[in-house]
Design a protein around this nucleic acid. Sequence first.
DNA 1: AGCTACTGCTACGATAAACGTAGCGATAGA
DNA 2: TCTATCGCTACGTTTATCGTAGCAGTAGCT
Lengths: 113, 113
Amino acid sequence: MTDINRRSVVKGGVPVRGSTTGQPIMVLFDLLSRRWAMGILWNLASEPRTFRDLQARCGLASPSVLNTRLKELREVGLIKNGEGGYELTATGRELFAHLEPLGDWAMEWVPTL
Amino acid sequence: MTDINRRSVVKGGVPVRGSTTGQPIMVLFDLLSRRWAMGILWNLASEPRTFRDLQARCGLASPSVLNTRLKELREVGLIKNGEGGYELTATGRELFAHLEPLGDWAMEWVPTL
DNA sequence: AGCTACTGCTACGATAAACGTAGCGATAGA
DNA sequence: TCTATCGCTACGTTTATCGTAGCAGTAGCT
């Protein structure tokens, strides 16, 4: 049974902002919609990257935000900090597989804006 | 050729926050990572919805934010305001098709948190 | 040993985004 | 006309993100 209090926190202490409706997809959207979160996953997909490399690829994201985001993504088990820098976990790669198709779609759509 | 100045604004005047790297996927991520953006698309997928219905389904999102988000999504042509309320455009449905698989994945993943 | 040049961060004040509540004008029904 | 709802807008407060500065740690020189 889902404890009512768990609505506000997910494993590792990462807080859920505002009131999601409690639906899993909304919890996921809440995590992914934090600044740079999807960009981080995207850029780690091909290979492990260092903090500063990641920062450069995320449009020079503020190191403070980048760091909190990396912490959160580590706490929910989507990325980990290995030898060659940050990299996706198995779960992270699963998620990325669903994100990947957006790349091609974006390449067609964005130029029409 | 991509005018350098276009990096900061997409059609309809919706501004791109911070410096994306200019890659289409980053522009898309920037749009989708605004608060409630993905939740809105998600909830409009099955049927048109009124402002207040949408608000309720998005965890009682602030009407001000919800309204700016709806404006932005309309300006980039992902949703429109029709007879029965807000609904996805053809483009919006295309995008949703790529978002949809995340629902099932989230249902398996989120409970493990 | 000392110097330089990196790295991954942390601190902190400034700015921007989101929140929450109140309420307005319009429409619909009793 | 009264009440209830709607789609919003206004506005003051809180939270998130930014941007710059800088520190400790490591590696490569001399």
